[in-house]
Design a protein around this nucleic acid. Sequence first.
DNA 1: TAGGATATGTTATAACATAACATTTAGGAT
DNA 2: ATCCTAAATGTTATGTTATAACATATCCTA
Lengths: 154, 154
Amino acid sequence: MNLSKPQQAVLNKIETECATTGLRLTAKRQKVLTILIAATSPLSAYDLISSYQAIYADALSAMSAYRMLDFLTEAGFVHKLSTTNQYLICSHLTCDHEHEVPQFLICDSCHDVQEIGIRKGLQDELESSIEKSGFSLNSPQLELHGLCANCNNP
Amino acid sequence: MNLSKPQQAVLNKIETECATTGLRLTAKRQKVLTILIAATSPLSAYDLISSYQAIYADALSAMSAYRMLDFLTEAGFVHKLSTTNQYLICSHLTCDHEHEVPQFLICDSCHDVQEIGIRKGLQDELESSIEKSGFSLNSPQLELHGLCANCNNP
DNA sequence: TAGGATATGTTATAACATAACATTTAGGAT
DNA sequence: ATCCTAAATGTTATGTTATAACATATCCTA
Ligand SMILES: [Zn+2]
Ligand SMILES: [Zn+2]
Ligand SMILES: [Zn+2]
Ligand SMILES: [Zn+2]
């Protein structure tokens, strides 16, 4: 499986981070990551399984797929879109800035997804408005549905 | 099935609104609504089916359940939590103010859910920050996970 | 190189959701 | 009132997403 240069950079970054933190990036996990990095749109778990079979000529069981997706999500390399039950590589792995609260703009027409970071001040206000009620946030993630620029002006 | 006074008010409000707008609130839909209004926590579609069977001694097929949930959601009476695949009655049906962007605080410990409205200015900023990228929002709904006040201070 | 922790394999099944087509019901036009 | 049409519901089957439970393999460390 061939990755473009920027895609390879993402993989390298993850490898480095795993080496540093002690997370185990096994061969299978790396293959799964590679598929997600190369994907042009979010994949369902079973999409991933099909791709894996097609690309590596090797089976990936549902159980394993979910375990690996959990691992990668937990580590922050991958995000899950819970409105569509799909998984995608984080778009901000090779950025300098710290990773912000992920906010996804999901086009309901062409299914393109853009990951943007929520502005700090906005996030703060969101959090403070929430914490007034005694609620403490875990990890907010916003999934916003609508139409992308292309689909708006066809 | 007995509803408390405020619960009955919610149902009445919905009945009135349907009468006004021409939406058809059939007997089955009303029964489904009643269950959701009386529920103390969000229900999965299959929870609803079980309750329906238990309470009305009558079958509700999965197909029908999903169709009714779609209808009620579409009408704005019910919200779906896509992070948990559950449905719940809107908490703001009998409020005076217009319904705001729904924002759910979901306790990952006790599974309590609180529906709050996002402050107008915050919503505006969220939207404008998004629309700069040419994206036009459909109906944003925020689902935020964390710990509720009770579970924070046990 | 033994032993424990972590990861993966395997099988089965649970939980969530929709397709396709038949039948019934509600409400308006004649 | 009767017909007509659209909307709602019934029915059966199946597709899709996700996890349980237990076995085996692999990795790391002492
Ligand atoms: Zn990200
Ligand atoms: Zn689009
Ligand atoms: Zn609401
Ligand atoms: Zn709680």
